[in-house]
Simulated scan of single mutants.
Amino acid sequence: MRIVVMGAGAVGCYFGGMMALAGHAVTLIARPLHVEAIRRDGLLIERADGRHRVHLAATEDPAAVTEADLVLFCVKSTDTEPAGETLRPHLRSETAIWSLQNGVDNAERLARTLGRPVSASVVYVAAGMAGPGHVRHHGRGELIVEPGPGNDVYAAAFTEAGLPVTVSRDVATALWTKLVINCAYNAISAIAGLPYGSFIGEPGVTDMMRDVVDECGAVAAAVGVSLPDDLWPQVRAIAATMKGQMSSTALDLARGRPTEIDHLNGYIVTKGAALGVATPVNRALLLLVRLRERAAARPEDAPEAAR
């Protein structure tokens, strides 16, 4: 199978690298530093079972999707439309596209940009880039993807490679469930600069997280999405299963990059405002992360003593 990963950060490198280890032809479209390192040394995947170095193609050129059977679209939510535009002229009509992104509306937005179907998927993996061409896996590694042409075959290939994929018509519930989890953890991790397991026990934190979950649930209900009855236990359990994980929002802030907060807590705030649902805790977290983004982007605004 010929797989191209568009936006080979931690998620793209992990899934693409694992499929390459399983013998599939994989090309990563990535940033220049990653491309240079992967071309020189291969991709290093660090897992609990050891370090695996896999040699695969890497490029900055979006035209690499021309021969793909499957494209894993892994760019940040803020880049969905512009990245889609760069791919559009090079895609074959029979190429399948999976959106492996945070948020609930990326597949829909990408489909509008490309003028063709895109399969929404839900990613469950804890991974981070330890350096150029070096991905570190912290846990999990499964996907839920909606039905589409060839998706059963692709899902079987991923599962055989140790990346379990479930094809499900109820992707919307899974997407919203993950959105709620991200809303509960990402902003707090970013604002505090701490991994999940380090802030969950602080007084008042779980109460605030429960408020976030309740607000998200009210917005989901107004949209017409039914969330699982055990949603809060699922949210609470993440701190135990991913205790050392920093949120992607925290990592973006640390690198001085724009975050996806507008597509996480910001999405809940926007939808809530449109539907008449109050979301004060999500709004507060959104505004605090935006202020942290501003501070990261403009360090000259910081007081001298804080530099």
Rank of each mutant, 00 (worst) to 15 (best):
R2D: 03
V4N: 03
M6Y: 08
G7H: 10
A8T: 05
A10F: 00
Y14S: 01
I29W: 08
A30M: 09
P32D: 05
E36P: 02
E36C: 02
R39M: 08
R39F: 01
E46I: 03
R47E: 15
V75T: 15
K76Y: 11
D79Y: 10
E81L: 05
E81G: 09
P82W: 07
T86M: 11
A96G: 14
I97E: 06
N102D: 09
D105V: 13
E108V: 12
L110S: 08
R116S: 11
V118D: 04
S119I: 10
V122M: 14
V123F: 05
A126E: 05
A127W: 06
A130L: 11
P132L: 00
V135I: 13
H137M: 03
H138F: 15
L143K: 00
I144W: 13
E146A: 15
P147Y: 10
P149V: 12
D152W: 11
V153G: 12
A155Q: 03
T159H: 00
T159E: 01
E160V: 05
E160P: 06
A161E: 06
P164G: 11
P164L: 03
V165H: 06
V167D: 04
R169L: 09
R169T: 15
R169H: 14
T173C: 12
A174S: 10
L175H: 01
L175P: 03
W176D: 02
V180K: 05
Y185N: 02
G193M: 08
G201C: 11
T206I: 13
D207Y: 11
M209R: 02
G217T: 10
A222Q: 10
V223S: 02
S226G: 13
L227W: 04
L227M: 09
P233D: 12
P233K: 12
Q234A: 11
A239E: 09
A240C: 04
M242I: 07
T249Y: 03
D252C: 03
L253E: 03
R255N: 14
N265A: 13
V277M: 09
A278L: 08
A278G: 03
V281E: 12
R283V: 07
L287V: 07
L291Y: 04
E293Q: 08
A297S: 13
E300P: 00
E300Y: 13
